[in-house]
Nucleic acid binder design. Structure first.
Length: 720
RNA sequence: GCGCGAUUAGCUCAGUGGUAGAGCGUUACUUUGACAUAGUAAAGGCCGCAGGUUCGAUCCCUGCAUCGCGCACCA
């Protein structure tokens, strides 16, 4: 080959698409298609399924590229590797996109009806669902598309049913009437983990309750107060415990007032540890329908009444009385403060910074609300997870995550799994249309017998399951479980779960207890929490801040390999990344260096077929430094990848290739035409391409194909 | 409030109990048989602050500050 046969610079666009097609056509992303000889046991990574409605952001890109590095390296080591891609149906988000479309057409979810609406969502999925696949492919991931899964596909529906009925039969699933996180915009409950707290400046109102003063940020909930609570050890209020305190009314129409015409009401005072004597006046107003703490107080003091004064739309109910009923929460707040002020019942108002609960999906302010929902009891499942972690049945990287997980499990609450959505896995539970019989029937089908009371048919609950309920089953539902498939035997447990910190509890933990419950083994051997990518200032990336790095744009500009290089270049241990373009730039230059050094060597070795073997004879007689260094870097690279030090591994390879090989050995070789040196050049080049391939697969595969050696794709060439 | 992590060159980050390193950027020179996306050389750092341990601390310990994160609280 002559120098002129290759262009002077590496042009990623001219090769990337073709190389990816060659890989896909070879079928080697599918473990069943790998050459059998030398194949070791299974090695699987299940991609965290991105939301079907979303786009790949730079964090996904890093996460999946890291997985791909692991997978590609193991494939080259002879393992039966599976990198399984997929998508999540994204309950709330999935419903939102279609509702938005309908709104433009002047329609709504409700005007369409459930069946038509769900059909419409499926249509949307068909039309836009593959967009995210294309983005994943552009990252150069060696995922087995023949095994791609969707959390709403047919098999998954059966799995969900199976799991729900199983949990129910074990008594883990129950209906509970309690205070949950209600999102007034999404019109559904959300779990504790889907609530985001942000610090906001609000007001703290000091209100007079008879003889005492109580501080609150939510004066409107005064209408739902049914008790007062003080700490049992608080000397100041001992005399009140067990008695009542008479509180002035601002509206004689409030229905719960025991004597509606009076101007006051008596609230019982209970003793409860939840009251902190150091906070405010040390007295809690108990509003059990609209506050979790208060609801818990009520469970310890059953005599406390529950009065719901705010409804699912964030509107004051009729129980709030004529004067306030029908107002929004904010309106009611203003009005009641005004009323109280006129009565001289507002002692003072202070500025107050506190955390406000927001919906993770739509950012609306969460309304804690008394509501009847389905729950999954966590006690036993969590205990299993805790046990497995303590017994080191899986490892955590970084290690501190282990303790963090254990501590979190320790304080876990039951999981609210029902959602008032239409898009999702409908809960296999049935109730009678007349709703007089409060008994629920849980099962695949409605019971044959009609309701004894009204003789009307049964109907399935309209609630669906939390999206995470299906994601929790991902590591094995994707392998054909509950059938005992070959895939399940080969690939479960998976090797690694590589995920962002923010889904540590929502996803990682839930996969863990699910895997333990259904397959008696943790679903992965290692939990790797990859770095979070922040902007240069260390701030979270967000559209509103305009500091988002779009991986697709990067790929457009510099190609896939340089993008992969730039991302991994910055991935030091599990430290957060303050984004910098420098790594991308370095990558681009490095690729060009590889390209041109290969070009030079190719021109030297000609086209005669050769074997890529270690020049042992030469080594015996000469002290060849570069070969020693190659051995060192090979070991170092492997050790670093084993310990999830991807950035370090890449930096090491960079130094070796550029400085040891190009700057020193290749430069020196220009004055040495010997065949021995030519052999060494080829050997070190070929070995380097192998080592680099998991990180920058495209250029290495292409150049490998130009070497006058065996024709096997680099993708499956044996590596150490 | 509890816990965790970070703080090193202009920027993004490695690193080590013994006179500090990379990438990117900057400066000067070089078109020498791949690469100017290059080569050679250079400038540039009280390694956050204050104590302690040590013959010796950027590294170990303690405290503080700043930034970020998680959990809890948020009447």
């Amino acid at each position: 080959m002559k120098l002129e046969d290759l262009p002077k610079g590496y042009e990623p666009k001219e090769h990337e698409e073709e190389i990816y097609q060659i890989w896909e056509r070879s079928g080697f992303f599918n473990p069943d298609m790998l050459p059998e000889a030398g194949r070791k046991e299974g090695y699987a990574i299940m991609m965290a399924p991105p939301n079907v409605t979303g786009h790949i952001h730079v964090g996904h890109a890093l996460e999946n590229i890291i997985s791909d590095v692991l997978i590609r390296r193991k494939r080259m080591q002879g393992y039966k590797t599976l990198f399984l891609p997929g998508k999540d149906h994204a309950g709330i988000a999935g419903q939102h996109v279609v509702e938005k479309e309908l709104k433009k057409e002047g329609k709504s979810r409700k005007s369409l009806g459930r069946e038509k609406f769900v059909e419409r969502v499926w249509e949307w999925m068909k039309e836009y669902g593959s967009a995210i696949d294309q983005e994943l492919k552009r990252l150069g991931l060696s995922t087995d598309w023949s095994r791609a899964r969707f959390t709403m596909d047919e098999h998954y529906q059966r799995v969900i049913e199976h799991v729900f009925l199983y949990y129910h039969s074990k008594g883990y699933i129950y209906r509970g009437n309690r205070v949950v996180n209600w999102c007034p915009r999404c019109q559904t409950t959300i779990s504790d983990l889907e609530v985001i707290y942000t610090e906001e400046l609000g007001k703290l109102y000091y209100l007079k309750y008879g003889p005492v003063t109580i501080a609150t940020v939510r004066p409107e909930t005064r209408l739902g107060d049914t008790a007062l609570a003080v700490n049992p050890n608080d000397e100041r209020y001992k005399e009140y415990i067990g008695n009542t305190i008479t509180v002035e009314s601002t509206d004689s129409s409030v229905s719960r007032w025991r004597s509606p015409r009076s101007v006051s009401v008596s609230l019982p005072v209970v003793a409860d540890e939840a009251a902190d004597p150091k906070f405010g006046s040390g007295i809690i107003k108990v509003t059990p329908a609209h506050d979790l703490t208060d609801f818990e107080i009520k469970t310890r003091h059953p005599e406390i009444e529950i009065i719901k004064v705010i409804d699912e739309n964030g509107i004051m109910t009729s129980a709030a009385g004529e004067r306030y009923g029908g107002l929004s929460v904010n309106e009611a707040r203003e009005k009641i403060v005004d009323d109280l002020d006129k009565l001289g019942l507002v002692e003072k108002i202070e500025d107050y910074t506190h955390s406000v609960a927001h919906c993770d999906r739509c950012d609306a302010v969460i309304e804690p609300l008394l509501s009847e929902q389905w729950f999954l009891s966590m006690a036993k499942l969590a205990q299993k997870a805790s046990h497995a972690i303590s017994k080191n049945q899986l490892s955590f990287i970084p290690e501190q995550r282990k303790q963090i997980m254990l501590a979190w499990i320790n304080g876990i609450r039951d999981w609210n799994i029902s959602r008032q959505l239409w898009w999702g896995h409908r809960i296999p539970a049935w109730h009678c249309e007349c709703k007089e019989d409060t008994q629920w029937h849980v099962g695949q089908k409605a019971p044959d017998a009609k309701c004894a009371k009204c003789k009307k048919p049964w109907e399935q609950t309209s609630d669906v399951l939390d999206t995470w309920f299906s994601s929790a089953l991902w590591p094995f539902a994707t392998l054909g479980w509950p059938e005992e498939t070959t895939d399940l035997k080969t690939f479960y447990p998976t090797a690694v779960t590589s995920s962002a910190r923010e889904i540590f509890y929502t996803w990682t933990f839930r996969m863990l207890f699910s895997g333990l419950e259904f397959l008696d083994k943790p679903p992965f051997r290692t939990v790797f929490t990859h770095p979070t990518i922040l902007d240069k200032q260390g701030k979270k990336m967000s559209k509103s801040k305009g500091n988002v790095v779009d991986p697709m744009k990067l790929i457009d500009e510099v190609g896939i390999d340089a993008t992969r290089f730039g991302l991994i270049w910055q991935a030091m241990s599990t430290q957060d990344i303050h984004w910098s373009d420098d790594g991308i730039r370095a990558g681009k230059k490095f690729l060009n260096k590889i390209w041109n050094s290969t070009r030079l060597i190719l021109a030297r070795i000609g086209i005669e077929p050769r074997a890529l073997t270690r020049p042992e004879k030469i080594e015996k007689h000469h002290n060849i430094q570069i070969l020693k260094e190659l051995d060192e870097i090979t070991k170092k690279t492997n050790d670093l990848i084993e310990s999830f030090e991807f950035g370090q591994a890449l930096h090491g390879l960079y130094d070796f290739y550029w400085h040891a090989f190009c700057d020193i050995y290749i430069e020196a070789s220009k004055k040495d035409d010997s065949e021995e040196t030519t052999t060494v050049l080829l050997y070190v080049l070929g070995s380097s391409l192998k080592l680099l391939h998991p990180f920058i697969p495209f250029i290495t595969e292409y150049l490998w194909g130009l070497l006058p050696i065996e024709h096997k794709q680099l993708l499956i060439v044996e590596n150490v």
